[in-house]
């Protein structure tokens, strides 16, 4: 067979492309994640209505919706491989790093879709006001990377366990807690009025960047042991 020397990037994109193609044809995770998000948001909008709440409360509600919606879908990326018994052939043919990077990319895209749907609906269905769209978008991107970075490795860990769904949320929560606190604080700055937004949120942004870098680096180092163990 003609060898093409496909590198890490090509192999990672192949895993990502395969996952997107399977997802596009089955809607396995998208349905779960988006429907959970919209349902939760609708319940929140009915209970909060058009009351004016503090920016911190809006921020917390927003990230709780994103967190639990993400919990309902992000683990599928590895659980599906185990349940359909394709994990074995993937282990036989692919090095761990492109598998992790491909799955990470898939979870980042899934979260991007979730945030792109939930964020506008959140402002339509609640009385939350966005004072700094730029800061909000930066926080969304950092949240997306941090959430995906941590949950992709956790998904690989729990995919071999019996009670996968419950274990995913239980394992993720303590690991994601620092990220969620940073996201809620940073987002509340984007909702608050009368502040210099980016500088006011600089410590939170540093935390979010550091968290993302640490999680992805640690995951890259640990994934081989989780995947092949």
């Amino acid at each position: 067979m003609p060898k093409n020397g496909t590198g890490l990037t090509g192999k990672s994109f192949a895993v990502l492309r395969k996952d997107l193609l399977c997802e596009f044809r089955t809607r396995y995770a998208v349905n779960a994640i988006v429907l959970f998000g919209i349902t939760t948001l609708t319940v929140v909008s009915f209970s909060v209505g058009q009351q004016s709440l503090a920016p911190e409360v809006y921020s917390a509600i927003f990230w709780i919706i994103i967190f639990f919606s993400a919990m309902s879908g992000l683990a599928h990326v590895f659980i599906r491989e185990e349940e359909t018994k394709t994990a074995m052939v993937l282990r036989l043919t692919a090095d761990p790093t492109p598998v992790y990077l491909g799955k990470l990319g898939y979870n980042v895209l899934l979260l991007a879709l979730l945030e792109a749907i939930i964020a506008p609906l959140f402002f339509i269905l609640t009385d939350a006001r966005l004072e700094s769209p730029a800061l909000f978008i930066v926080v969304l991107i950092l949240g997306m990377i941090g959430l995906a970075g941590a949950t992709t490795l956790i998904a690989a860990i729990i995919s071999k366990a019996g009670v996968k769904g419950a274990l995913f949320a239980v394992l993720s929560f303590p690991i994601l807690l620092p990220l969620l606190i940073g996201l809620i604080n940073a987002t509340s700055k984007a909702f608050a009025t009368g502040e210099v937004y980016f500088s006011a949120a600089s410590s939170e942004l540093q935390l979010l960047v550091s968290y993302g870098v640490i999680m992805i680096t640690a995951s890259l180092l640990l994934f081989e042991y989780v995947w092949e163990g």
């Binding site: 090509g10 895993v15 993937l90």
Partner: peptide, 22 residues
């Protein structure tokens, strides 16, 4: 098992890329 939601050609192409084969 191979991937149910891929065609035979897509399955082959996917594993070929992972093996570094065109």
């Amino acid at each position: 098992a191979l991937y149910d939601s891929l065609t035979a050609a897509e399955n082959l192409r996917f594993f070929a890329v992972l093996r570094g084969i065109t």
